[in-house]
Computed example of a mutant assay.
Amino acid sequence: MKIFDPISLAGLSQSNRLWRSATNEKMADDDGRPNEAYIHLYEKLAQGGVGLIVTGCATVMSEEQPSPNMLAVDRDDLIPDLTRFTTRVHAAGGKICAQIMAGGPQTIYQQDSRIAYGPSAVAHPLYGTIPKEMTHDDIAMFVDAFGQAARRVQEAGFDAVQIHGAHGYLVSCFLTPFFNRRTDAYGGSIENRGRFLLEILDAIRSTVGSDFPVFVKMHGSDHRPSQGFTLEDALVIAQALESHGLDAVEISGGYMSADWATSPMRPQIIRQEKQSYFAKDAAAIAEVVSIPVISTGGHRSPEVLNALLHTTRIAGFGMSRTLLSEPDLPHKWRHGYTGLPRCVSCNKCFGEDVNMCILDREKEPLQK
Rank of each mutant, 00 (worst) to 15 (best):
G51T: 01
Y42F: 14
Q65E: 15
E64L: 07
A37I: 05
Q47L: 14
D76P: 07
P68L: 04
V54C: 14
G49D: 06
L41F: 10
G49H: 07
L41W: 14
I39L: 08
M61W: 09
V60K: 01
G51A: 01
I53L: 06
D76C: 06
S62K: 12
V60Y: 02
A37K: 08
P66D: 03
V73H: 02
Y42V: 05
V50C: 06
Q65A: 04
M70V: 10
E63Y: 11
P66M: 03
G56K: 01
Q65V: 07
Q47R: 11
V73P: 02
P68R: 04
V50K: 05
V50A: 13
P66F: 12
E64H: 08
Q65L: 11
V60E: 02
M61H: 13
I53S: 05
D76M: 13
S67T: 12
E43F: 01
G51P: 09
V54N: 07
V73W: 03
Q47N: 07
E64A: 10
G51S: 09
R75D: 10
T59F: 06
D76H: 12
L52I: 15
R75P: 00
A37S: 13
T55H: 04
L41Q: 08
P68T: 02
Y42R: 06
D76A: 08
N69K: 06
T59M: 14
L45M: 13
R75H: 04
L52F: 12
T55P: 11
L45F: 11
G56M: 06
R75G: 02
N69W: 08
M70C: 02
E64W: 08
K44L: 13
E63R: 06
K44S: 14
V60G: 02
G48W: 13
N69I: 06
M61C: 11
Y38H: 07
A37F: 09
L52Y: 03
E64Q: 11
R75K: 13
T55Y: 12
D74E: 10
D76Q: 11
V54F: 13
G48F: 05
Q47H: 10
M70I: 07
A46D: 12
D74L: 13
V73N: 06
V73D: 15
P66Q: 12
V54T: 15
V73M: 02
I53C: 00
D74P: 00
A37T: 07
P66T: 08
E63F: 01
P66L: 05
Q65S: 09
I39K: 09
R75E: 00
N69V: 07
V50L: 01
S62P: 05
L45K: 04
C57N: 15
K44C: 03
T59Q: 12
L45N: 10
C57S: 15
V60S: 04
R75M: 08
M70R: 04
K44F: 14
M61K: 15
D76T: 07
S67V: 04
S67N: 05
K44P: 11
A72F: 08
N69Q: 14
H40M: 05
A46W: 14
L52N: 10
Y42N: 10
D76L: 00
V50S: 14
A72W: 00
A72R: 05
R75N: 05
N69T: 10
E63H: 07
S67G: 00
G51N: 01
E64F: 09
Y38F: 11
Y42P: 04
A58S: 11
T55Q: 05
D74S: 12
M61N: 08
